[in-house]
Design a binder for these strands. Structure first.
Lengths: 211, 211, 211, 211
DNA sequence: TATGAATGAGCGTTCATTCAT
DNA sequence: TATGAATGAACGCTCATTCAT
């Protein structure tokens, strides 16, 4: 910053460039963090669906234009935030010991399921963004879905629930039934039962057939 | 309603009422039919997502208000149209002989799957309405989903794919995997494979474990 | 309104249709008038340039959507209002007796010139819309400019200022010099002189050469 | 500026200062030239109205801030570029022999008129900046307009088109009619005629009355 | 039932300009 | 001088839905 006219060897030059880039990036990152924090605060108070760009910007103390300079649109931020929360659930699951039984497996998934079904809006948004429309469009939620299946593979590898099929197929099945159990949660005809009560029979039939 | 003060004996009065009711109902039904036809024409040309109420009423030659006198909201008409198409697929499946193998089962489902994944918008809408939000909210799509599971039960009963679980659970599993296979269709990472190619392994593992 | 089910002969039917159309149009016209009145009030208080759609809509007590249902954009309303004011000046000029001398002619034009140069914004907007870009784009300002030239022709016909050229050409010249005199008004190098003082020499040279 | 503490005798110091100043000025001028060239390239491709500062700095390889370090605002650069082009037309006119007839005069002005009416945006901007808003605000376009009138005076002096009015007034009239002819060019009702065809009658009536 | 003007609330955009580094 | 993220203040738009007639 001070040493403007000093001669720099290429390495120094590179470092200066880098630090400039970082300095700039730092400010950017701070603004971005402020926006995300503001959004999370709004969500905390009023829920996901009620989050308004106007409100977020107001709290973050930035201009609206800044919001759209950081996020393509409102949904992009929404994805980011929901993806991050999904990731914290995954982090915990990954850190925890592999479930030893189908019941334990279902039980382990409940916090994640509870979050995903906390709001109809959240569930719909997750489903909408769970598949990457294009390679470059792989967003946080699609990535997280990948992590989920990877984790289920790990669990399947550890437990060898079924030996007649690959762990990958097994994992995808767990995922399919998890979605199925959650989807029916929003259906008045089924939601007397808890998600867990719906998930366990599916998983037993899937992971432990003939038993 | 006001200027009908001509004297009538009760029988005549009743008959007139009846014919008025019929006339009215006829006109009402005609308007309704015109609206549906117009909507289908618009969809034919521009797809489901691009359908606008404005455009529909323009074609139908009615006012916008008339649209909402006939359908609770835009989604209600959408459900009606999509539900009707789903029903024609179900009609065909019900009329056809029960599939004898897993491969045949998957194959039989393909036309239905193709329609359901014809547009991301269609798939999302179907999922959203596949569960009845309330008893009185059981719409065409939720009903159709019920029919699907019923049909799968029939198939399961006829074939006894698995004997360790009930036909109802078996049917729900088929449905879950059908959804899973379709969902991945919108994911660029998987859609090199056809829906059928994704569905068959799922169903084999589900319906014929240990084989 | 009451006679809903009465039979109507075609003429009556037509009248009813017409009155319905009128009833609808009346409401529309009222809303439109409210919007225009609100805009004029805002302009009265803060000037043309400071007029904000938001403020207009607030005063008119309508939704923003209503504004854009009535006017293509803000400029369309601006044109309308400025065009209307130009028209009132033209009305007065047309009602007044034809000026008998060049000085009187210039003098007569001063109120119009004063309005046109009241704000830089106004003058620029008038110039921008003074030519119709397309036949269907003939707006109020372009029409008014036509009226101006027509009036100048009438004056020229009454006075025969010049006999060597047509009244139409004469009129266009008056117009050209009027614009020229106003344009220089915004130029700090010339605006010590009044518009009138600048216009008179031009018009003398144009309308009474060799005298 | 900071790390230049090596001892120098005054002469050397002066020389270094000079060479630094030159170097700096050179770099500055280069940046400025790059910006102007970039702007001209953008204009070449997409026209004047579509020119965006963003695009210009991208091409020039500078930051946005640099743009505004060199030009007060976007319009200042626009004026510069348009003024420069106007000047080349004036240079040619000044170098050419004085037109001997009204027709020749009009003809001589056509290239200039063609440029000024090449885009509505250009014409509007020229008009807006043709008068100096303040003494210190005399920009390239206002200066060029001065040159135009000066040239018309020279022509008028050489030809003595009219003897009853001063050459300055005569010149201003030519200018007024030139503007008038161009303004009608943007009006769909008149642009069947060429600018020249509209200008000649004006100028005949102005420069050669009673003939 | 039919009408269609009006609603409404928020999203996304625009892009020249500023300012701290 | 150079940088480029941030600003800002409207504008325009969307379009399903409502409601008085």
């Amino acid at each position: 910053m001070t040493a403007v006219n000093k001669k720099l060897d290429p390495g120094q030059f590179f470092l200066q460039k880098l630090s400039m880039a970082k300095a700039l990036q730092k400010r950017t990152l701070e603004t971005r963090a402020r926006l995300i924090a503001a959004a999370e605060a709004v969500i905390e108070e009023s829920g996901y669906e009620a989050m308004r760009v106007e409100e977020v910007v107001l709290r973050a103390g930035t201009a609206k234009g800044t919001f759209f300079a950081h996020f393509k649109d409102k949904d992009a931020l929404m994805e980011l935030i929901i993806g991050a929360r999904l990731d914290t659930y995954l982090d915990e699951l990954e850190a925890a010991p592999d479930p030893k039984s189908v019941e334990a497996l279902a039980q382990a998934l409940m916090p994640l399921c509870a979050f995903m079904t906390s709001e109809r809006y959240v569930f719909d948004l997750i489903l909408r963004y769970s598949g990457a429309a294009a390679i470059e469009a792989i967003g946080p939620i699609a990535v997280n879905f990948g992590r989920q299946v990877d984790l289920f593979e790990r669990w399947g590898t550890a437990n060898r629930f079924r030996t007649d099929i690959g762990v990958d197929l097994q994992a995808e099945g767990i995922h399919a039934f998890m979605i199925q159990a959650m989807a029916t949660h929003f259906c008045s005809l089924h939601n007397a039962q808890s998600i867990n009560d719906r998930l366990v029979p599916y998983l037993k039939a899937w992971l432990a057939p003939n038993s």
